[in-house]
Computed example of a mutant assay.
Amino acid sequence: MKHGILWIGFLLIITSTSLAQKGLSRTEAESLSVNEWALEKHRLLPAAEKVWAEGIIKFGKYTMPIAYRVFGEKPADGRSLYISLHGGGNAPPAVNNQQWENQRTLYPISEGLVIVPRAPTDTWNLWHEDHIDNLLDSLIRYGVILEDVNPNKVYILGYSAGGDGVFQLGPRMADRWAAASMMAGHPGDANVLNLRNVPFAIYMGGRDTAYHRNTLAVSFNHKLDSLQKLDPNGYVHDFHLYADKAHWMDHRDTIAIAWMASFKRNPYPDKVIWVEDNRVQHRFYWLSAPVGRLEKDATAEVSIHGNEIRISKNTFQELNINLNDQMLDLNKPVSVTMEGKVIFRKKIKRTLSAIQKTIQEYQDPTMVFSAKLVLEGKKIRLSYKNNSTINE
């Protein structure tokens, strides 16, 4: 296997110059995407094996133990992955350790890899501090590499403080999830707009009055109702308020597993609404932005209609629109409209550099892009012509 990987790398080096000059065909782009992912997978494999062997994952100064288990036979399209977040929060370590143990017993899974992480801290916001996103990203990657997880079948759920985490992580990491379920948590300042393409379920006890969890859950559901009325193709959601229950719902929320499992992620939704949270992200579905130019509250709303890209809103300093042939026909001209005006119309080259960059950015075999447009202000430029602005 090692010699095969090295041979692929050698072939890519000797052909990269000519490919850059003439661009890639669809077949070449798809083949190179597979090969480049094989190289990236090979590079990541030692780190993944170390985490699985030790049962601990690290990011910076943070250490997160994990308990994981595989259930059922592997489906033809790969395993499901459930990331299940425990409760507790601002409590002594022993309390959070007990909650971690308890979380492993709450939800019956018939198929899939289940990862129950132990929060790295014992703070009130233990599941939505900045480092959590990096740790969960790595867990997803390693599950794909080691357990043949289908990245389009990744689900997140959590109880109490874990539910707080799902309210926050569901929207801000929306492009990772096939579906999300929140149990007995508090939404805080969670941004509902980013949930346009993530089925989101809420489970709450009607008598769970602490911190106004019950009334805030109702309010959050009303927001989803309103958004879905305006956008019937988005904001799929499910709401369960158990009137006779307080903070503990006596396992009634276990129906969430079957509900979530009925969905798969669409990595290329025809419409993306991206609002940066306090914890900024560098990518969101097929949109991305340079790490050094990210800002809280930056917003983009972009959709694809045939070979037309419509930009309804953008406040990012620089916004990358990542494309491939599963989204539109790159053999034909692509047009971009903004404020009702065509600002770009041109055929776009598929390039090896775009494939390599998006594999590094996403590290997801189902989110590889062979072409990239860059939006700055109201002007579009091609990523492979860094100094040329095209406005035609």
Rank of each mutant, 00 (worst) to 15 (best):
A53R: 01
R43Y: 08
S80W: 00
F59D: 15
G89D: 04
L39R: 07
R79E: 06
S25D: 10
K58E: 14
E40Y: 08
R69P: 01
F71S: 00
V34I: 14
A76M: 11
G89R: 02
R43G: 08
M64D: 02
T63P: 00
L45I: 04
V95M: 12
K74T: 14
T27R: 15
S80P: 00
G89Y: 01
L85A: 11
A94V: 12
R79Q: 07
E30I: 00
A91F: 06
E54C: 05
I56T: 09
W52P: 02
L81Y: 11
Y68S: 12
A47P: 02
L24M: 11
G87A: 10
A91I: 00
S80F: 00
S84T: 01
I57M: 03
T27H: 12
N97E: 08
S25E: 12
G23W: 03
Y62L: 08
L24D: 10
P46E: 02
T63C: 00
S84A: 03
E54Y: 06
P93G: 10
W37S: 04
G23I: 03
G72A: 11
K50T: 12
L32I: 14
P65M: 01
S31A: 13
A76I: 15
F59R: 14
A48Y: 04
P65G: 02
N97K: 11
H42P: 03
W52C: 03
G60A: 02
R43A: 14
R79I: 03
E73A: 11
Y82V: 00
G78I: 03
E40N: 11
E28T: 02
G88P: 05
G89S: 07
H42T: 10
G55E: 11
E54N: 14
A48M: 07
